[in-house]
Amino acid sequence: MLRFIVKRVGLSILTLVIVSVIIFLMTSILPGDIAKQTLGRDASPEAYEIWNKEKGFDKPLVVQYGRWMGGVMTGDLGTSFKFALPVSEVLGPAAAKSAQLAIVALILIAPISILGGIAAAMNRGKKVDRMLTVGGLSAAVIPEFVWGVILILIFGVVFRVFPVSAFPNEENPNLINSVYHLLLPSIALLFVLFGYISRITRAGVIEALDSDYMRTAVLKGLSRKTAVFRHVLRNALLPTIAVIATQVPYLVGGLIAIERVFNYPGFGNTLLKAVIARDFPLLQSAVFLTGVVVVCFQLIADILFAVLNPRIRQRVTE
């Protein structure tokens, strides 16, 4: 098992190295002169040169990449052009805010989606199933910001039951108030993620329902309900929980539009500001951070899956 984990962690690190190279190359090689974009078109060539020297952009690419990665290792992410603050001080609080939103959203999304998937599987081919699967996936392909706009229109403007901003105005909002503000954006994320998670759950449950061992259980004389609980859900849901972890990229990606619509000072909004200001130190690290989050969740999913599945667990241990 340990060997498996070490190997998986190694692969994840390799992936992250490739991610960092891609990010670095995109910002360095793609056409578009950073100095020109930052200082404006009218600045003198000397000004560009001084600026580039100051920021270290005159050094060879390998050196620049080394400096960036060295900084990432030691926690020094450089200084944001826009905020004139260390990147970590800009990114840290914003990421914490986004994590709050993501956690509230996941607490809402995971159980509802899993239950939806189970309900669809148990009613396979019936109306409930069609509605949940077709409806769920149709909702999932509508962009988050469209959901945001529609939700704000309905609950914030027409009925005025929910705050339209995700962030309370008070100085020290209590937990309930914070969650209350996060509810509408979480619902928007729910619409986008419900379809995927419930579909994965449904497929897992159906596979288990159709399995020979389920037949064995029923023919042993277990009632259908007991058989489903003991033999189907156990086999179907444990991997599903692991699979949810792989949906994290969608969640992180979705945060950007959601934070913009609900005006939430999180990671996504910060990243968007960095894009508009062409604040590359901030942008590089922000994008790399999303890569780290996604890869970590995938790693957790992989390991969880192996731990939960005796077949893999055994192959791994041997």
Partner: peptide
């Protein structure tokens, strides 16, 4: 009804089928 069928399977009729390895639950 289903309850009586289950009772029958529990106590009076059993079945053995092809592909024994898939007939057993892989995680129990």
């Amino acid at each position: 009804d289903e309850g009586d069928v289950a009772q029958l399977r529990r106590s009076a009729i059993s079945m053995v089928y092809q592909n024994p390895s898939t007939a057993l639950n892989p995680t129990i």
